[in-house]
Structure formats: structure tokens, C-alpha cells
Design a protein around this nucleic acid. Structure first.
Length: 806
RNA sequence: GCCGACGUGGCGGAACUGGCAUACGCUGCGGACUUAAAAUCCGCUGCCCCUAAAGGCUUGUGGGUUCAAAUCCCACCGUCGGCACCA
């Protein structure tokens, strides 16, 4: 018998929809559970295997939580702004709005076929004015709080996308989206002051997130404690400030190097004694891309400025160099060279012929020219050649010298971060316009809230990028009045990074969308944080960091966190490679769903392996799940046993226990395996009606349509009356009964010297003596203990006995 | 280079807190049903030796701890992810 997947799936999807089973009352008194997946981008490629792999198991989890008695809210929406739709428009002339809406309506259909509990009444689309109006409001909120500012800065520029990029969107010097080499450009751009929240973002207490993700964020933020030391410059009434985490080694400093694009160089370019050489070097490095610089490896280059800085500690004159291994964005952009204790400084000193002094002797007593040159960081050591620090260990010396420098006024303790402010301007069309008006008299003026949204113009737009935002070419958009003075003014023509849209959508889901507000404060308070958030690990230092920041800022609470528990799904590959159109290895879920039905397909996604590890797609394995679904249906629809055997009852309750625990831990594969074993056990002789009901209930999160059909079927048989019965998803979750789990006997494992030699049936609670006696009766044990001395016996109650002989 | 994860049959994978390695599924083989095929049902399926029994070997490699190691410790090899001249 083959159950009619297609028919029953359509039937139940219709019933769920007409009964509004999944439209949630956000004001209900039941305990809430906010279950969220990262919303998809509505691309022309439609729903792929990766979406199914993410959405289907999470929906199973949500259904499980609902059956556990929670008021589960599971929304869905579309991260609809972004480059692909715009690039498609450039190629074909189809307006982004049009293609996006077409893709959304197709995807909505596909999503429907999964058979999820999405509450469609709360759907969001970030490209809709009803949504981006409030994205603009978010921008204004941050602007009001002084967290949004505009400044000229060297920024990442992708020549192919013709737009700037955030640091997080540059991977190995290439544009994350199109792999074009990113170059540095000086541009005036909008930034969010995420660095203001660096400490709060580092604090992740209470977050149930993967350790790896937390570690990545901590590393990305990159907090470092150190000191800024000021040195006088000889003969130039100036100072130079350097940042260091190793002031203990400062008696070993022999030179200073500054970044070619540092403030110090820009300010002094015309006054350096060797300005000609410096200018030539600066020009040369400016021409190189980051990629070219990286390809040169560790080779050190530099040029002497002609100035000397004086080290107050010992009066040493340290030549100041310009060198491109120093980065302008780190610390002060200037580095003090201690070649005896830093590999890069050592290489620079060797290249330039500068002195090397050892000031720390490591635990191994090594006195070579540089300390353990293969290692940049030393962890222990004792000070030498360092005046009043001599004999101290490096940690004590670090504190002592910092105190000393601060007392003398030569330095100041500081904390620096690797994290930089979030560059959010994009010179592209398909995004939310930045709600700012530029007035010659009043400067940058925020658009008043009542005038939101600043609508994206749909007519006369030239999407083709020319290094300027496409909106700049739309006169009717650009020309406006200043909200402050009423004079003629121009609109900001850049749009916002789409990560701004996605950094607050979880709040928007919670509102009834027809109100004039971004979110409902009361509902928000009740429903946040998201209890379970699932999405790809690639968002660790982008979306997940941005969303935390924006949420903290909007809530006026630096401790507020948007996502309590986070799980990353694994990646589904094809023949070991990431699926992509260009490789031509994309597997479409549609044909499999058509052939086997959603229940089978989603169960296969869950059976493939551990959810967090993903796996390689293979067409063949799905037949096993299809068989399981058939057998499960046959078992349910087959004869009812009058009474279940003791073993079946025990295994049924064991399965309930295991499935419950496995779903909680996201171990869907082993939960399914346990249910398969149960079906195999019961298949021949059938099960009692009450056992069937329990089985169908635990199957329900995995195969929701099949379970509803089975539930209805069992109900009709049992009551004899066909009337409206409540959905299985409102029938609660079965509890296992511990009394059934206990057996009277067990199989005792018998080992000799740790090797299994026999197994024997024994009573639960058997004593050590009896177990040993039983073991010695076994023929195979006698063979291996004959003529040997028995040393001892190890006994693990109700499990194993091990006879040790020599 | 640094940080993190991982390595188990022909394949996907299972194994709680150190206690039966290979559950469950795929593939393959054999059988039943069938005029036949598909589907379905039943059985076998880590490797070596072997008619079989018994035995020996096996969780990337090498060592260690333990009565007992896929699991703990040390070293090495390999795969993947992140960061990378970060002062």
C-alpha cells in the first residue's frame, strides 16, 4: 500500500488555512515561544535545498513546542532589498520591484508546500514602503542618539558593484558578492557607531549560542588593553603617539614606524626633513591594492622621515620611518619598534640596518638575537637591560612601567578594538533611501517622522551604476525643501545597506502592521527575546552582530539581547561542493516533493545526518524514508492488536522518551531512527489503538500531514463518528511512563581481559558473585581462563562483568 | 602563522558520563510473491582465515593511561570553517 501523499498534503494544508490554525494570538496567556529562521532573499532561483534544510526541521521543532503546550509564533518574510534584483534590472530592464514581487509570490507558494506553521498574517517584505518606512525610522532613532554620523574616510570600494562595502563584506581583499578586488577610496559616507557598543557586544552572558560563534564575535570585536606612549620629536616641537600592548619591552625600543596613510604622515608630509623620499613612498603604496600588498608577503619596506623621537626612559634617539606593514586603522597608526621581541619589528630592523636589543630572557634562558623568532608573542620571561624593571617577570613589569609612564605624563592606558564603525551607505538603487535632506544653510537635516517614508522613485530611474547612486539622476527625487528652513535642498541619494533592514525585522513580525508604529512596545516586551533562532553560520560577524547592536540601541538597553538561543544549520553540498548555478550542481527540491511529498522530503532532510553538520546530497537515500512513511501508514491503518506485548509497550515508551529528548537537542536523525525501529518491531503483528495514537503523536512534528490524516483515521475508527476533531497539534505531547521502561532481565556482557567472550540473560539486580558465577559457566569463558590465574573481577551492575586473568 | 571544529563499513551515519563498535537507512546478495518485471514482504551484508564452528583484526597514524578507549592524555597526518603584517 502506498499512502497518497499529494492528496492528503493538499487536504490538510487547506484545512489548516481555513481554520487559521497557525494564526497566533500574541496576547494569549499561554507561555510564549518565539521560533525564528533567518528570512530568505527572494531570488529568481526560488527555494533551494538549503532553504528546506533550514526551514523544515525548524518547523518540526516549532510543532513539537506547540504540542508541548507553548503558544508558538513562527513567522516568515522576505529580505527583499539587495543587489541581485538590481543587477537583473540592469540586464533586462525589469524593475526590481516587479521581479522581486514575482519571486515572492512564487516562493510563498513553495513555502506553502512545505506545510509549515508560519503565521502568514504577520508576513514582512523589507522592500515594501510599509516596512522600509520603519527602517528609515530606525535610522532616525540612531541619528537622534548620535549613533549615525557622516564623515569622509577611506572606505572599501567595489568597482564592479560600483558601491562601497562594510568591512564585514570584504573577504580576503575581495568583494564578498562578486569577487572583485576591493580598493580603498576616500569618500564621505554614513556610519553607525557600533564601536560605541563594543563592550556590550563582548558581553554575551546568558546567550545560548554555539561557542564558536561567540568566539568569532569576540575575535571580530578584538578588544586589546595597552597604552598610548607619547614621544617628543627632536627639533620639531611635536609629539608622536604610539599604541603598544607590550610597554614592558620599551627599554628595547630602537625605532618608530608610521603607516603611509596615517594621520601623522598626512599632517607632516610637507615638513619631514626627507619629505621627497616620504612622498614617493606614500604615492607608491597608495597605488597598490590590498591584494598586491598581501601578495608581497612579509617583505618589509620603508623610508626614513629624517626625524627622531626621544625615548624618555633612556634618552635613546629613535629614527621615525614610514612603512607599509603598519596599518593606519590599528591603534594610533604608529608603532614603536622593539626588534628583540617582535618578529615584524625584527624583520624591519634587519631590512633597514637598525639596532636590536634583548630586554627579556625567556624561561628557557635563550639569549639569541631575538626571542624565539618563530613566535611573535612571548608569555613568560624576566626583564634585563631595563633599569628599574630588571629581574621582574614581564607581567609585573608591564603594570610597573604603565604606572610609571602615566605618573610622568608620558603615556595613558587605553583599550582599543578591532571592530570599526558600520559603513551603511550604498550607492545603489534597490534599498531604503537614507532619510536625510542636505541643506546649504542647515547642513544634514533628518526627514521628520511624519514625512516618512521617503519613497523610492519608480520612474525615470537609470539603474546602471556610474559611481554615483542611481537616485542622483532622478531630479524629482533629489530636489526638495529643507524641513528646517524651507529653502531649496537636496535629498541624500545613497540607500542603506540591506543589513539594516534585517537587523530589526524580528520586532516587526510582532506587530499588527496596520498601526502607525514600527512595533508594539507591550507585545514586544512580552515576546522578546526570540527563543530559538536558526540560520547559517556565515552571519556570525555580520547580521548577528548588527542585529544585537541595533536592538540594544532601539531598546535603550545595552544589556538587551534579541536572540536567546541560536543554532546554525549545516551546509548541504553536492558531490562535496557548495551548490551554485555557475557550477551547475544545484539540486531542486521541487521534483522530489512532487514525487514523494513534503512529509517524506522533510523527513529525509532530517534523517541525512546531524542538523548542525549538513551533508552531501544524494538522491538514493530518500527511498528509505519513503518506505518508512508507507510502513508507518500501513501500521496505523492496519489491524489493531487487542493487546500489546510487554516488549512493544516498553519500546513504545522508550521511543517517546528518546524522541522527546532528541528533538530538544536538535538530533532529528536519531529520533527518526528510533521511530523506524518501533515500526519495524510492530509491523508484523500490529499495535493497539491506544499505542497507535501515541506513535502518531510523536511522528506528528516530523510528518505533519501524514500524522493529521492518521489522527483523523484513528479517531473515526475509535469513536465511529466522523465529526470535527481537534488538530493533532492541539492534542498535547505524550508523556512516557517510567514504569513501562523497566525490564526484568537484561543481557549481561561477559568479558575476559576486556574482550567480549559471551553474553547471557540475567535478572536485573543480579549480584556480583552471581554474575561472576554465570560468567564462569560459559564455555568460551572457560577456554580463555583455563590454566590462568584469576586476578580480579570488574562488575558494572546490570551491564557487564569482566574477568581479569594473566 | 593563530583560533575553532572534525576524521568510524562500499555510502549517509549511530554509540549516554570510559563499559556489547558499526544502531537506523542506502547500496549489494539470497529467498517469497509474480507468466514476467516493478512494488512489497522475509533474511544476510565491517575486514581476514574458513565448508562451518572457533579464532584473529578494525573507529586517520604512532605512542600513553586503564580491568576496559571511537570516547581521556601526548605527538603527528589530513579535511573544513574563521581570522591574518592587529603593534
Amino acid at each position: 500500500m502506498r499512502y497518497g501523499a499529494k492528496k492528503i498534503e493538499q487536504k490538510w494544508q487547506k484545512i489548516w488555512e481555513s481554520k487559521k490554525l497557525y494564526e497566533i494570538d500574541l496576547n494569549s496567556k499561554k507561555p510564549k515561544f518565539y521560533c525564528l529562521v533567518m528570512f530568505p532573499y527572494p531570488s529568481g532561483d526560488k527555494l533551494h535545498i538549503g532553504h528546506w534544510y533550514n526551514f523544515a526541521p525548524v518547523d518540526s521543532y516549532a510543532r513539537f513546542m506547540r504540542m508541548q503546550g507553548f503558544n508558538v509564533f513562527e513567522p516568515m518574510g522576505y529580505d527583499a532589498f539587495g543587489l541581485p534584483a538590481e543587477n537583473y534590472a540592469i540586464k533586462t530592464g525589469v524593475a526590481p520591484k516587479e521581479s522581486t514581487e514575482k519571486n515572492i509570490s512564487y516562493m510563498r507558494q513553495q513555502l506553502g508546500r512545505i506545510g509549515t506553521m508560519y503565521d502568514w498574517s504577520k508576513e514582512v517584505n523589507t522592500s515594501h514602503p510599509d516596512y522600509y518606512k520603519w527602517t528609515q525610522w530606525v535610522f532616525l532613532e540612531l541619528f537622534k542618539k548620535g549613533l549615525a554620523y557622516r564623515k569622509e574616510a577611506p572606505v572599501n570600494w567595489c568597482g564592479s558593484c560600483q558601491t562601497v562595502l562594510a568591512n564585514e563584506q570584504v573577504k580576503e581583499g575581495l568583494c564578498e558578492r562578486c569577487d572583485t578586488t576591493v580598493i580603498q577610496k576616500d569618500l564621505t559616507q554614513w556610519f553607525f557607531k557600533i564601536t560605541d557598543y563594543a563592550e556590550d557586544l563582548l558581553n554575551h552572558r546568558g546567550l545560548e549560542w554555539p561557542e564558536k560563534t561567540l568566539a568569532m564575535q569576540v575575535h571580530w570585536i578584538g578588544r586589546k588593553e595597552g597604552i598610548n606612549i607619547d614621544y617628543e620629536i627632536e627639533g620639531a616641537d611635536k609629539k608622536i603617539s604610539v599604541f603598544t600592548t607590550r610597554p614592558d619591552t620599551n627599554f628595547g625600543a630602537t625605532f618608530i614606524v608610521v603607516a603611509p596613510d596615517s594621520l601623522f604622515v598626512t599632517e607632516n608630509l610637507d615638513v619631514f626633513p626627507k619629505k621627497k623620499e616620504v612622498k614617493a613612498y606614500v604615492d607608491e603604496t597608495a597605488k597598490k591594492t590590498e591584494l598586491e600588498r598581501m601578495s608581497e608577503g612579509r617583505k618589509k619596506t620603508g623610508v626614513f622621515t629624517g626625524w627622531y623621537a626621544v625615548n624618555n626612559l633612556n634618552g635613546r634617539k629613535m629614527p621615525i620611518y614610514v612603512g607599509d606593514f603598519v596599518l593606519a586603522t590599528v591603534g594610533t597608526g604608529n608603532v614603536v619598534g622593539v626588534p628583540g621581541h617582535d618578529l615584524r619589528d625584527f624583520e624591519f630592523a634587519k631590512a633597514m640596518g637598525l639596532d636590536v636589543i634583548r630586554v627579556v630572557i625567556g624561561p628557557d634562558g635563550d639569549k639569541s638575537e631575538i626571542t624565539r623568532p618563530e613566535q611573535v608573542q612571548e608569555e613568560e620571561g624576566v626583564m634585563v637591560n631595563s633599569d628599574f624593571l630588571d629581574g621582574m617577570n614581564i607581567h609585573k613589569a608591564t603594570v610597573k612601567i604603565m604606572d610609571h609612564l602615566e605618573e610622568k605624563g608620558w603615556g595613558k592606558r587605553v583599550v582599543i578594538y578591532r571592530l570599526r564603525d558600520w559603513l551603511l551607505s550604498r550607492q545603489r538603487y534597490w534599498g531604503a533611501p537614507i532619510p536625510i535632506v542636505r541643506c546649504k544653510k542647515c547642513g544634514d537635516v533628518p526627514v521628520p517622522e511624519k514625512d516618512l517614508p521617503v519613497l523610492l522613485p519608480e520612474k525615470d530611474v537609470d539603474y546602471k551604476p556610474k559611481g554615483k547612486a542611481p537616485l542622483a539622476s532622478v531630479d524629482s527625487f533629489v530636489k526638495t525643501k529643507c524641513p528646517k528652513c524651507g529653502g531649496s535642498a537636496e535629498r541624500e541619494v545613497d540607500t542603506m545597506d540591506t543589513f539594516v533592514d534585517s537587523s530589526w525585522y524580528f520586532l516587526r513580525y510582532l506587530d499588527s502592521h496596520d498601526e502607525a508604529r514600527p512595533f508594539d512596545p507591550a507585545i514586544n516586551k512580552k515576546w522578546m527575546p526570540v527563543d530559538m533562532y536558526v540560520g547559517g553560520p556565515e552571519h556570525a560577524c555580520m547580521h548577528l552582530l548588527y542585529a544585537r547592536f541595533i536592538h540594544k540601541a532601539l531598546m535603550n538597553d545595552r544589556k538587551a539581547e534579541p536572540f536567546k538561543r541560536l543554532v546554525h544549520q549545516g551546509l548541504i553540498t553536492k558531490d562535496g561542493a557548495k551548490m551554485s548555478k555557475s557550477k551547475g550542481n544545484v539540486v531542486s527540491p521541487d521534483e522530489f516533493v512532487e514525487k514523494y511529498g513534503s512529509d517524506v522530503f522533510r523527513m529525509y532532510m532530517m534523517f541525512m545526518g546531524p542538523f548542525t553538520e549538513g551533508g552531501d546530497w544524494n538522491d538514493r537515500g530518500i527511498t528509505g524514508i519513503a518506505r518508512f512513511a508507507d510502513r508507518a501508514w500501513n501500521l496505523v491503518a492496519g489491524k489493531h492488536a487487542a493487546k500489546d506485548t510487554e516488549e512493544l509497550t516498553r519500546r513504545l515508551h522508550g521511543t517517546i522518551k528518546k524522541v522527546t529528548e532528541d528533538i530538544q537537542a536538535f538530533h532529528f536523525n536519531t529520533a527518526l531512527a528510533a521511530m523506524m525501529e518501533l515500526v519495524n518491531l510492530a509491523y508484523k503483528d500490529g499495535m493497539s489503538l491506544s499505542a497507535k495514537k501515541l506513535f502518531v503523536q510523536i511522528l506528528a512534528p516530523f510528518a505533519p500531514h501524514l500524522a493529521e490524516e492518521s489522527w483523523e483515521y484513528l479517531y473515526v475508527i475509535a469513536s465511529g463518528a466522523k465529526q470535527s476533531i481537534p488538530s493533532i497539534f492541539d492534542a498535547g505531547w505524550p508523556k512516557f511512563d517510567a514504569k513501562y521502561l523497566k525490564a526484568d532481565t537484561f543481557e549481561l556482557v561477559i568479558q575476559v581481559n576486556g574482550k567480549v567472550r559471551a553474553r547471557a540473560k540475567a535478572d536485573i539486580g543480579i549480584s556480583k558473585e552471581d554474575a561472576v558465577k554465570l560468567a564462569l559457566q560459559q564455555a568460551s569463558v572457560q577456554v580463555h581462563t583455563k590454566d590462568k590465574k584469576r586476578l580480579k573481577e570488574i562488575f558494572v551492575p546490570d551491564k557487564l562483568v569482566n574477568i581479569v586473568v594473566n
